[in-house]
């Protein structure tokens, strides 16, 4: 079996935003529309402002709340775990926005539908990596197969990310590390 997931290694992430822009480029997203972006960790979690990030899009949950609550069945889940949203079926009721604790579905007001990360399933089916993963210059963002790859050193619910075992988000995390800092007196 295959169970695809994103792995987000905040120790390696350099905050370059290439992942988010690669996504916009791949799908020609409307201005203002962002499927993946960097979330800076608050200073309680990492001691320096704007210096550690989680790159997040859809977490392709095993128990997707978006899918469960969608009245029109716009969401489907593939056997490999990818949660796919169909914009043509979506009527823009935004119930999924109320149900996704990770803020993944985005409402496109002009189009009247919700959009979200598709894990680039067409690319995966062609043997390619998702656009964001291919873009990551430091391998901080990777595609893993939870049924095959060893993810024992990763965390499923790190600080800065909602603890929602009821949804079983598939994303795995490695936490950031702060350097020793020598400041001068001013």
């Amino acid at each position: 079996m295959t169970r695809y997931a994103f792995s987000v290694n905040a120790e390696l992430c350099i905050g370059c935003s290439s992942c988010g822009m690669a996504c916009k480029n791949q799908y020609n997203l409307d201005p203002g529309m962002v499927w993946r972006k960097l979330y800076p960790l608050s200073e309680e979690i990492y001691p320096h402002k704007d210096r550690a990030f989680y790159s997040l899009a859809c977490n392709h949950c095993s128990q997707p709340a978006c899918l469960e609550g969608c009245p029109v069945g716009a969401y489907t889940q593939r056997e490999d775990g990818i949660v796919v949203h169909n914009e043509d079926v979506c009527i823009g009721c935004r119930n999924c926005l109320r149900n996704c604790p990770f803020g993944a579905p985005r409402y496109n007001e002009e189009e009247g539908h919700v959009e979200k990360c598709s894990m680039c399933w067409q690319r995966i089916d062609e043997g390619l990596l998702p656009a964001c993963v291919q873009a990551c210059p430091t391998n901080a963002l990777t595609l893993v197969d939870l049924d095959v790859d060893d993810v024992s050193s990763t965390v499923q619910y790190p600080p800065g990310f909602p603890y929602r075992p009821d949804l079983e988000p598939s994303t795995r995390f490695v936490l950031p590390v702060a350097p020793k800092i020598v400041r001068r007196d001013v």
């Binding site: 290439s18 822009m21 291919q134 210059p137």
Partner: peptide, 19 residues
């Protein structure tokens, strides 16, 4: 996309390149 032939960029661009 980035040119995968280069081991340096390995198929990736930056936030600017993708725009």
């Amino acid at each position: 996309e980035g040119d995968p032939a280069s081991t340096f960029t390995r198929g990736g661009l930056c936030v600017k390149g993708y725009s």
